[in-house]
Design a protein around this nucleic acid. Structure first.
Length: 586
RNA sequence: GGAGCCGUGGUGUAGCGGUUAACAUGCCGGCCUGUCACGCCGGAGAUCGAGGGUUCAAAUCCCUUCGGCUUCGCCA
């Protein structure tokens, strides 16, 4: 009995037709003389009625079926009797009267309910992921993901891009995340690395003259996991030649408009606003600011540089800054709530958190006694404080202050429910620094990656003041999540070599690790640039999920295990021998 | 590597030194011809994540360990 229809294809227009459905028993309601079964397939549910008056055989079979049995049902579509329609069901106006049924397979009772909004330990869902994915919301997440990717492919194909695959077995590179390594059997003692991104390959495709490349690329990074980080994840990887920043930004905005239209039927406005890195760090304390709410951070350094309060003055004397955040209406916070904010601050690297409650006719604060009335007045004015507000202050080096107040800004927004979950707020972050100093390695490291071009006018700074050098890089931020980023690349050998040297890579290492790229740049490398999107994160936002695990079919746990397959696992001595590998005793 | 939360019938919870380990749901059986969270009656199902300790007595207190989640570090 092969299906003639999907469950939800049936509606009042199908009344009178004989149809065959294939699917799973969702629920069965046995009334003794009449049995109702909700039949589920990928499309949804339809009610099947088993009546002995219609068919004795299938009625008796239906007495024995259970949840998740796989069945084929032939039956007649009828209108439901008056007052028995179910408005909650897409097919609620009709039902199928079974004239015959075949049980295609039995099923054990599943370990959790096959329905939306279940509350079970995630480890159970991951162990039985194939059952978890039967749940409509998970199925819909995967279908939405498919639509997003298809929309991207269609868009880029329409813009004359060529989809090209690059190697999964590739070369380990020194910069960036920890590599996943694959031992080479043919070359004992040598290893491939799985790509952290197809970065160099896509640039070389530009040297090859492909001009417009994209790929739905799996990337691998052996770092610790988070709700939005898996060791393998999927990027939409794009690279183009003979373009500048604006070409890419426009291309991507057009793509986002199409993707949201195709996948969610939502219209988004463009152009997206642009924010410089410096401005974002100052006002929002983050390089991925959530702009769905205001709560801007205020610079107070000049204003408070000669106050008596040691915490402020010594931070400033040490080259740091003092900034404030007006948590509007939070003056009613209890001491406990304020202490929680202080803990968040210290957990994120602050030494403490100063605060002032602005009451109707007084200021409550442990620090106010250190301020002159003039200072107090100036602070109140700078933060536009009103009675009922809570003012938070952080004093430290610039990075710590920005981070701490940025996190508190998000925390306050959460507590005050300032975030409209329906909103889609895109912005571009531009003018990133090219490099930052890594005190652990006591050298500069690339903020984006070492192939990012410095701004033309800043190239000289590479020698004199690398920290001040800006990059031709841009990130796309959606609701406070970095969903994509890219840059105009270096395409000249000399500049690329200079960049590597600024990163303190030795000549030999440069030659060993990147020699092939530098060689390529000597054979007519066009100016080029590109961008990459985190598809998992984008789909996570589109589906309103708290974790990318919910939009990946078979994700890993926080321990980087697959609970379903029990990977990773030991391998046989034979396999190790062939690879000339020996594991150390535990 | 650090911090926090969680772990009790299949599932979700309650119990927090002495209980016959409770409740809901699911499961099994019976009844039921208009349900859709079907209803009613009955039943089975737990060595309380694992190991050790304290105690006359441990699901409950302590230690260790395992697993899941969140997070800091890490993630060009």
């Amino acid at each position: 009995m092969k299906r003639t229809h999907n469950a939800t294809e049936l509606d009042v227009n199908s009344i009178g037709q004989e149809v065959i459905l294939n699917g799973w028993v969702d629920t069965r309601r046995d009334h003794g003389g009449l049995i109702f079964v909700d039949l589920r397939d990928r499309s949804g549910l339809v009610q099947v009625v088993f009546s002995p008056e219609v068919d004795q055989n299938s009625f008796h079979l239906a007495e024995g079926i259970r949840s998740e049995y796989v069945v084929a049902v032939k039956g007649e579509v009828r209108a439901r009797p008056a007052a028995t329609e179910n408005p909650n069901l897409k097919t609620g106006k009709i039902e199928v009267y079974a004239v015959s049924m075949e049980i295609l397979n039995k099923a054990k009772t599943p370990p959790f309910y096959i329905e939306d909004n279940i509350d079970v330990d995630e480890s159970l869902r991951l162990k039985y992921r194939y059952l978890d994915l039967r749940r409509p919301e998970m199925r819909d997440n995967l279908i939405l993901r498919h639509k997003v990717i298809k929309s991207m492919r269609d868009y880029l194909d329409g813009q004359n891009f060529v989809e090209i695959e690059t190697p999964i077995l590739t070369k380990s590179s020194p910069e960036g995340a920890r590599d996943y390594l694959v031992p080479s059997r043919v070359h004992p003692g040598e290893f491939f690395a799985l790509p952290q991104s197809p970065q160099i390959f896509k640039q070389l495709l530009m040297v090859s003259g492909l001009e417009k490349y994209f790929q739905i690329a799996r990337c691998f990074r052996d770092e610790d996991l988070r709700a939005d980080r898996q060791p393998e994840f999927t990027q939409l990887d794009i690279e183009m030649s003979f373009i500048d920043e604006d070409d890419i930004l426009q291309l991507i905005e057009g793509m986002m408009v199409k993707v949201f239209k195709d996948a969610l039927a939502r219209d988004i406005k463009n152009p997206f606003p642009k924010l410089t890195y410096d401005e974002a760090m100052l006002k929002y304390g983050s390089d991925r600011p959530d702009l769905r709410f205001d709560l801007e951070i205020t610079e107070l350094t000049d204003l408070v540089k000669d106050v008596e309060f040691k915490v402020f003055s010594s931070a400033i004397a040490a080259g740091g800054v003092v900034r404030g955040l007006n948590a509007k209406t939070c003056g009613s916070f209890s001491r406990k709530e304020i202490d929680e904010l202080v803990k968040i601050a210290t957990d994120n690297g602050a030494k403490g958190l100063a605060w002032i409650i602005v009451a109707e006719d007084e200021l409550k604060s442990p620090i106010i006694k250190f301020f002159t009335p003039e200072h107090t007045k100036a602070i109140i004015e700078a933060l536009e404080a009103q009675p009922g507000d809570l003012l938070l202050f952080s004093a430290d080096n610039e990075n710590v202050v920005a981070k701490v107040l940025g996190i508190l800004r998000l925390e306050i927004a959460k507590r005050l429910s300032l975030i409209n979950e329906e909103e889609l707020n895109f912005c571009w972050l531009i003018d990133f620094p090219l490099l930052e100093f890594d005190p652990d390695e006591s050298r500069f490291v690339a903020v984006h990656h070492p192939f990012t071009s410095p701004k033309e006018e800043d190239i000289e700074l590479l020698k004199t003041n690398p920290a001040k050098c800006k990059a031709r890089a841009y990130d796309l931020i959606l609701n406070g999540v970095e969903i994509g980023g890219g840059s105009i690349r270096i395409h000249q050998k000399d500049l690329q070599e200079k960049m590597f040297k600024t990163l303190n890579l030795g000549s030999k290492e440069i030659k060993d690790k990147f020699g092939y790229m530098l060689d390529a740049f000597e054979y007519g490398a066009p100016p080029h640039g590109g961008v990459a999107f985190g598809i998992d994160r984008l789909v996570m936002i589109m589906t309103n999920r708290p974790s990318i695990r919910d939009v990946i079919a078979f994700p890993k746990t926080q321990n980087a295990n697959c609970l379903m397959t029990a990977a990773p696992s030991e391998v046989s001595p034979k396999q190790l021998r062939e690879l000339q590998l020996r594991t150390r005793d535990k």
